[in-house]
């Protein structure tokens, strides 16, 4: 595996504008989603501790803001996963496959 791995010119792939583009898009998207998800999650214990009056407000019979907010945590987590997977399946995978194919073709051409 290592012998084969050395035949790909990693520096060239790393410098490839398509790889830079993939990297830029992915990083911004991933770390953005990550920051949002962590912030949204910590609102729950913080809200329960410091905004308990708000959490107590009843919305629908006994259903209060706190319960709705806790349920929304599940929906937001699933939503983030869905949004990420859709974009990765449609966009990132195709870009990576293209770079992957060219890099392996390049390596095959260089290797005697």
């Amino acid at each position: 595996m290592d012998m084969r791995a050395k035949t790909v010119d990693w520096a060239a792939v790393n410098a490839d504008p398509r790889f830079r583009d993939l990297h830029r898009r992915k990083s911004r998207f991933l770390w953005g989603l990550m920051a949002f998800s962590v912030a949204y999650y910590f609102l729950l214990p913080l809200g329960a501790a410091y905004a308990s009056d708000l959490f107590r407000v009843k919305l629908w019979g006994p259903v209060n803001v706190g319960l709705v907010f806790a349920w929304s945590e599940f929906l937001v987590a699933w939503g983030i996963a869905f949004v990420y997977a859709r974009r990765a399946n449609r966009e990132f995978d195709a870009l990576a496959a293209e770079i992957n194919r060219d890099a392996l073709a390049q390596a095959a051409a260089v290797t005697p």
Binding site: L30, E73, A77
Partner: peptide, 21 residues
């Protein structure tokens, strides 16, 4: 009651880190 349910949320959110990073 409520606190038990709130406690469970973190165990799911944990998988966002696993998925994204």
């Amino acid at each position: 009651g409520y606190d038990g349910f709130m406690y469970s949320v973190g165990w799911l959110v944990a998988y966002i880190t696993v998925l994204l990073l």
